[in-house]
Design a protein around this nucleic acid. Sequence first.
DNA 1: GCACAGGTAGATT
DNA 2: AATCTACCTGTG
Length: 302
Amino acid sequence: MTPPAWSDWQDVPTRAPLDPAVLAETLDGGQAFRWRRSDDGTWIGVFGPHAARLSLNPVGRLRWSAPAALAPTTGPALARYLDGNGEPHDLTDSLPWRSDAHLACCLAAFRGLRILRQPFDETLLCFLCSATKQIVQIKQMVALLAERHGAPLLERSAFSEQPSLLPWRLPTWAELATVPEAQLRACQLGFRARFIHETAQFLAARPGWLEETEALAYAVAKERLCSLPGVGEKVADCVLLFGAGRLEAFPVDTWILKAMAARYGLHGWKPAQVAHFGRAHFGPLAGLAQQYLFSWERRQPR
DNA sequence: GCACAGGTAGATT
DNA sequence: AATCTACCTGTG
């Protein structure tokens, strides 16, 4: 029996040590849906054609390793995935925390929290699954999609010690276009199956459309994403924030709606109004502020 | 049994 | 233009 053949641990060049809870919030707090924590606290995940382990070394620095066969390409890919916009300390410093005590509190509580830069196409798929679902269930749907319709990352033997580990990529949109809607429903997608099916057909008819969209300016990219079946303002903003590094995107979900009502007095405001307020109040990095507010709010009991 | 979950789209007012 | 509802399904 071959061992998993993981590469040696290597440091991720981050400036400051990280709290385990912040790492958990980064990888498993609703930005990404393909990371699992092992009993020893190591996180294992798949993004694009890459698989990686992440953990904190004894002094709290982030380190990574990958299946040996994939390690050479994983390093640079992981650097982009984790640090698409730069050090969170530098970025959060330009948020208006000096004049916003609640924001300052959220920043302090989750020091080091990052916005991930995930593959654009996968982010779209994951957030098409997200409507009125909790993180655990979104992860389950996405895992089924990967196992049943995605390609294996490498030979099974390389993962023999951990068969439950997600050795599959998520299906590409081209692959999804060949899957009947009924088979998508079988992945526990519910009414989201139709959205994914129709989006796959839309994209199959327009080669290059998604890649072009990723490169467009925020407002235009968002408008284009909203023309996809099942993509409204909230999902479009999530895709642009977590899958394209557009930190000006300010997704307004039920948590942010609650947070802005309770902490900023915006009782009874509509999502579009809250989004407007958020962009005006937090500025060009509003999406980064949103993630801290979101994490803080979610941690409050009931 | 029933409300609720990181929404969206189409109908109704 | 604003508000109401159906849409799937697991969980408490």
